[in-house]
Design a protein around this nucleic acid. Structure first.
Length: 445
RNA sequence: GGAGAGGUGGCUGAGUGGCUGAAAGCGACGGUUUGCUAAAUCGUUGUACGGGUAACACUGUACCGGGGGUUCGAAUCCCCCCCUCUCCGCCA
């Protein structure tokens, strides 16, 4: 959500943002509704003002405890006279109310339309964001590491996982339907190890570890920008008006919703490992092979809440990308960083980078991380503010987030790149400490 | 899930229909005074939206968990919801 004042004063900036982000938002309608909304407020406030004044007078005639009532009695008025005058004023005040009722009814409708329209206005992308029309226009920023050249025919993670007995998709599907899986034995250990490595890395870098709810109120889905629009992608529990989150970004970012944070506490940095639930609606037939696109996975997510300062949030953006890179480097995985273009970045984001890791079976880089910077877009929706030390005013925070690691997707490159000719998989050094020192995953005899 | 109690400003806590945007205390901020960190004293001290201004000032409205209702008038009365606490039940 943006500031309506900003929208009012810079409609062309918003129009441009809609265009480059390929987002439809009826700006003309919004401005008209905003206009009407303010007219209604002015008129109703005026009526309430009159009515409040009348009520103040009525009190004197109808409330025997009031000083003026006593004075008027002393001056010779009879209680009957006072009551009559009070009734006359009350009738006058009641007459005012009809117009107010009408206005309130209209205001209800106008207010709802205003809110709905406001939720569709896109955040303005940064100058640094490449303008594009699809993900094909995302710009590679840098690469790290070399994709491995095999001197034997490498297996893909599905085949590897099956032979090693560590990934069981058949039984996963039997139990839970398509896009489900089981990790077993060393596969389960590997999954946990990756998460632990990520968690240890991120907390060593000053992020507070948090254990979060993954079934959250719908408000938090709206607040973080997943709703409206993303309802189809989430598992929603209708009875409870709650949704299963697709990422710990939601609870972490919403943690301080409706609060005013002391500026001295910023930036706040959080990390959480959580299960992530995704319906993957509309992705039927896409990435069906293996454990790339699945309904349920675990992810370590990092979130920063900081002051409303573009330079500062940009710095943090680079920081959270570096954090993710550190984990990939520890895992010795080759990856590249992409600047995501306007058409591919989503409504709320100012700037966004993806990290893609080399996956031999895909013969290319596959997305493993996504780092977003929102400005105050989420904070406005969440009513997440801090008190500015100098001006003493309450200001919406800036929010940012990035993956630290998501598993089992990261197991795809991990298994495929570390496989040996005999079908075993070498465990990266950084993970061995989390796996009872296991160096190689081998098929059971 | 059942029974009960409760949700008031940064905090504690008064207030059961008008003179209450809200006592009192604490805290915070500013001034004065005595004077090395303390005390005394005076004052200021909520948020949102609208109008207004170059910006202040100023001004209107709303807000006592949220939403509706009664009334000329609601923190106060009525209804629904949310949340917290206590007890019982169930349970990883």
């Amino acid at each position: 959500m943006l500031d309506i004042k900003f929208i009012r004063e810079n409609p062309d900036v918003i129009r441009k943002a809609c265009e480059v982000k390929r987002i439809k938002s009826d700006l003309d309608r919004l401005l008209a509704v905003d206009q009407r909304r303010r007219e209604i407020q002015q008129e109703s406030d005026g009526i309430r003002n009159q009515s409040n004044e009348l009520s103040g007078q009525i009190a004197h005639y109808k409330n025997p405890k009031s000083k003026l009532y006593q004075q008027m009695l002393e001056k010779g008025s009879t209680p009957e006279q006072l009551k009559a005058e009070g009734d006359r004023l009350a009738a006058e005040s009641a007459a005012l109310k009809q117009r107010l009722k009408d206005l309130e009814v209209e205001n209800q409708a106008v207010g709802e339309e205003f809110k709905a329209l406001m939720l569709t206005v896109p955040q303005v992308p940064s100058d640094k964001t490449p303008v594009g029309t699809s993900d094909a226009d995302n710009k590679e920023v840098r690469r790290h590491g070399e994709p491995r050249k095999f001197d034997f025919e490498p297996l893909d993670h599905v085949e590897l996982g099956k032979r090693l007995g560590i990934i069981d998709t058949e039984r996963g599907v039997k139990i839970a339907g398509t896009r489900n899986y089981l990790l077993r034995g060393a596969g389960s250990l590997l999954h946990q190890a990756v998460l632990r490595l990520a968690m240890d890395t991120i907390t060593a870098r000053g992020f507070e570890p948090v254990t979060v709810p993954v079934l959250v109120r719908d408000e938090m889905m709206y607040g973080t920008g997943y709703y409206p629009g993303g309802e189809e992608q989430a598992y929603r529990c209708e009875r409870d008006a709650k949704s299963l989150v697709g990422t710990a970004e939601v609870p972490l970012t919403a943690m301080y919703a409706d609060e005013i944070i002391d500026e001295s506490l910023l930036p706040m940095k959080f990390a959480a490992v959580s299960t992530c639930f995704r319906r993957e609606a509309g992705a039927a037939g896409k990435d069906t092979h293996g454990i790339y696109r699945i309904h349920l996975f675990d992810k370590v997510e990092q979130v920063i809440l900081c002051r409303a300062d573009d330079a500062e949030s940009e710095r943090h953006h680079h920081e959270i990308i570096a954090n993710a890179e550190a984990v990939l480097q520890a895992l010795e995985l080759p990856y590249r960083v992409l600047a995501v273009c306007t058409a591919d970045m989503g409504q709320g984001k100012v700037e966004m980078y993806d990290i893609e890791t080399w996956m031999p079976s895909r013969k290319g880089y596959g997305e493993t991380h996504s780092a977003s910077r929102f400005g105050d877009f989420q904070a406005r929706r969440l009513n997440l503010r801090y008190k500015d030390g100098r001006t003493k005013s309450n200001i919406f925070c800036h929010t940012l987030n990035n993956t630290v690691i998501a598993s089992p997707r990261i197991l795809i490159p991990l298994l495929e790149l570390n496989q040996n000719a005999d079908g075993s998989v070498t465990v990266p050094k950084a993970l061995r400490g989390y796996m009872n020192g296991l160096e190689r995953i081998e098929a059971k005899a």
